[in-house]
Design a protein around this nucleic acid. Structure first.
Lengths: 204, 204
DNA sequence: GTCTATAGCCAGATAGAC
DNA sequence: GTCTATCTGGCTATAGAC
């Protein structure tokens, strides 16, 4: 166990470094524009070595998404403990976390219409499982927020859930940041406000 | 002029058919997944013939976007004539038009982070010009809606403009449609409502 | 497990006859 | 302007030495 676990630890560290690079490149240029050559160059190892760790480019992307889901789930579970925060507040907090991640250039994005990506993603048990867990948690919050009268009761659960998820890949934060002029915190608040309260004027 | 204009007319019809196919494929699978071979096959001509009409794959995509912008501008100008409709109503109507187009599978989508696509798009004078005209028109509506107290006055113009544009490529309508269960009209109304009034419960 | 070198493939673009 | 046939480059993936 001594030597074996040490080797495994080194291996984990290396694979984590790989996933870091993949995550960043997925955020920067997306799956198709990201090349395996570039991943290898950025990590600082040969391309063939990458394939000793991950079976395919799709597996690399799936690993990045899996880690994202793990982190999101961790954040969500911490929020779930906070009995003092209302359901709507938890939803807002999680969206804030996601938008901040996106502005930091760390939100990987996948083209889910791409057949091979889809296949790998649903084939990767951990990813599907994590997504289910996260959705279950969020679904409970949404139902609670509707019961509390904080979210429109006429909206079906899936409409709210999809709308929340979609903000993670929304181009608006990035565009506003690129336009300059505004700092990240301001952008986050605007996006959260338009998401929950819409573009309309708030009742004064 | 007789023979020349006839030939030109035939040419226009053929190019229009090409753009139809490109538009549909861009809506279906996006720029990268769309192949020139498939375009040629769907149009029913040889690939080399395509390149007699358009210089590159990017030019094909730009042509589809240009036609989309022409149509959007036409719809916007018609709405602009309607003195009886308030500014917010015009904005809602244009968004409805866009979401319907998307649900019909006719909203082409471009990856604007893709360098060569960006270059072609900004290099294509007509596209840039049309986008500017559309944005000017929408900008005027937005300012008017803010003056009328229908849109939050604290929002900068670009936030509102980007948010409106982003709905044209939003995945939510497609996801809701795929989930089945709901008809298009219902999906359109939900998306428009969440855009302008947010997820929050409306004051009763 | 890491490397260099290369196979195999696919898609964008072109040559040249008609 | 249309076609068939081909070129070219870039990308994923692997072979094989160490």
């Amino acid at each position: 166990m001594t030597k074996g676990s040490l080797r495994e630890k080194v291996l984990r560290v290396r694979e984590n470094a790989i996933v870091d690079v993949v995550n960043r490149l997925l955020a920067e240029k997306g799956f198709e524009q990201m090349t395996v050559d570039e991943i290898a160059a950025d990590v600082g190892i040969a391309k063939a070595s990458l394939y000793k760790h991950f079976a395919s480019k799709e597996a690399l992307a799936a690993a990045a998404i899996e880690r994202l889901l793990e982190r999101a789930l961790e954040v969500a579970r911490q929020l779930d403990e906070r009995a003092d925060v209302p359901a709507l507040g938890r939803l807002r907090a999680l969206v804030r976390w996601g938008v901040k991640l996106q502005l930091a250039g760390e939100m990987p994005v996948l083209p889910l219409h791409h057949p091979s990506v889809r296949a790998e993603f649903v084939g990767a048990r951990p990813c599907a499982e994590l997504l289910t867990q996260l959705s279950d948690l969020l679904g409970a919050w949404i139902l609670r927020a509707q019961a509390d009268g904080e979210v429109d009761r006429s909206f079906p659960l899936e409409l709210v859930l999809y709308t929340l998820y979609a903000r993670a890949a929304d181009p608006v934060p990035g565009l506003l940041k690129t336009a300059g002029q505004h700092d990240d915190a301001q952008v986050v608040e605007w996006v959260v406000q338009t998401l929950f309260a819409g573009l309309g004027a708030r009742p004064s």
